[in-house]
Design a protein around this nucleic acid. Structure first.
Length: 419
DNA sequence: CATATCACG
DNA sequence: ACGTACGTGATATGG
């Protein structure tokens, strides 16, 4: 693992850091001015509605305002934090309609985050000697084997909202070149299919089916699935990857306890290998003190009330010991269930980076960024047609699994256009 | 330096 | 009784 993956990867990361990525600072400064104008309007509206000025960036002061204006709704719909009532986006969403201030607060939160963290920060990090931004890729920062990125973090550049996509337009290739993004489709669910050897999942992926729809079909026991039902299937599939327990699983159905239980049994029957696999991983975590990825990378875990089982035979652990747990032990078990999946995904994209780097030796094109399940390149236009299938193949075949890996690859004038 | 919040996969 | 569950890093506030 060390010799085959981490050591060969290190000079590739060094090259990516050294190369950096081009930023359109003038464009970001225009965006900044637009944001400043809009933020000022929102502040003015908010002060009017609140009857006085306060610091919109202070959850503490906002909490005071909300307690003053809509005490009943706020206390009912908020949750307690260590220091008081939460004013986070989930809470504010629930308060929409209760007071005219709420919509403006939400918009202000979003826009000021984007302005301070990206629009204003990135141009300041452009290095004078290269004209580009040079991130750090941290190779030993996470518990699962993923990379992390800092100064600046290039792995959390906005994409989810319409406005935030404007920020991605600021990331440019060399003048005249193309920006290229190649991302794995549903890699973590495919790894779950492989690790669990669940026949329903394997069959679905081998036949190129939409797995969120498949889950929804077995959930609702019908062929035709609405977009809402598919979204629900997607949520459940992610929940499984994150180690969501059967109880929470039933409750997220939003049905009665009896319905939830019936549904769990149905799901359990249909994806029985997935649950067997997750149980087995949890038992191994407790008995061995670690869990492993496909390439043998380990995540070590400590338990409180379950520590008496360390060094015992995993198969001898009674399923009841996985119930009534301390908060910490429950969290550790979820982390244990997730680590082989998230970590194997990291293994695979690292192997892919090593393969892709070999290919790039014969081209001018450069690997710029890794964002967990995607690679970002800048490519001269005359290399694109030839490189596209080579990058795709290298990534899809980095490590053969029981299910195919699929990579979507697109080129554009900037990062936003590569989707 | 702890906390809350929020950006991403 | 719950808008939750895995992995990160940056920013602002406030002690």
């Amino acid at each position: 693992m060390l010799l085959e993956v981490e050591q060969p990867l290190e000079p590739i990361l060094a090259e990516m850091e050294y190369c950096g990525i081009r930023i359109d600072s003038a464009y970001l400064q225009e965006l900044s001015q637009q944001l400043e104008k809009r933020l000022a309007e929102l502040e003015e509206n908010t002060y009017q509605a609140a009857g006085r000025k306060f610091n919109l960036g202070s959850p503490k002061q906002l909490s005071e305002i909300l307690l003053e204006k809509i005490p009943d709704e706020f206390q009912k719909k908020s949750r307690k934090t260590k220091t008081g009532y939460s004013t986070d986006a989930a809470v504010l969403d629930k308060l929409q309609g209760d007071h005219p201030i709420v919509d403006d607060l939400l918009e202000h939160r979003t826009l000021s985050k984007l302005k301070s963290t990206y629009v204003d920060a990135l141009p300041q990090l452009v290095r004078a000697d290269t004209g580009r931004v040079h991130t750090d890729f941290n190779q030993a920062a996470t518990g699962t084997g993923r990379l992390s990125s800092s100064n600046p973090n290039m792995q959390n550049i906005p994409i989810r909202t319409e406005f935030s996509r404007q920020i991605r337009k600021a990331f440019l290739p060399e003048p005249g070149w193309l920006m290229v993004s190649a991302d794995y489709s549903q890699i973590e669910l495919r790894i779950l299919a492989h690790l669990s050897q669940e026949p329903v999942l394997i069959e679905a992926y081998q036949n190129n089916r939409d797995v969120h729809t498949v889950t929804a079909q077995l959930l609702f026991e019908k062929e035709e699935i609405t977009p809402d039902e598919r979204r629900f299937g997607k949520t459940i599939n992610f929940g499984v990857i994150y180690g969501m327990g059967a109880i929470k699983f039933g409750k997220s159905m939003g049905k009665s306890a009896a319905d939830g239980k019936k549904f769990i049994e149905r799901f359990n029957q249909r994806y029985s290998k997935v649950f067997e696999y997750l149980e087995q991983v949890k038992k191994e975590a407790i008995a061995l003190g670690y869990v492993s990825t496909i390439l043998g990378r380990r995540r070590y875990l400590n338990f409180e009330r379950l520590s008496d089982l360390k060094g015992t035979n995993p198969e001898a652990i009674h399923p009841d010991r996985l119930k009534s747990l301390t908060k910490n032990d429950a969290q550790s078990l979820r982390a244990a269930a997730n680590a082989p999946i998230q970590g194997s995904s990291a293994d695979i994209i690292k192997l892919a980076m090593i393969e892709v780097n070999k290919i790039l030796q014969n081209y001018q094109a450069r690997l710029l960024l890794q964002v967990h399940d995607e690679l970002i390149f800048e490519v001269p236009p005359d290399e694109w047609e030839e490189l596209q299938p080579k990058i795709k193949d290298a990534m899809e075949n980095a490590l053969p699994l029981s299910v195919p890996l699929i990579v979507d690859i697109h080129a554009g004038k900037n990062w936003m256009e590569t989707k």
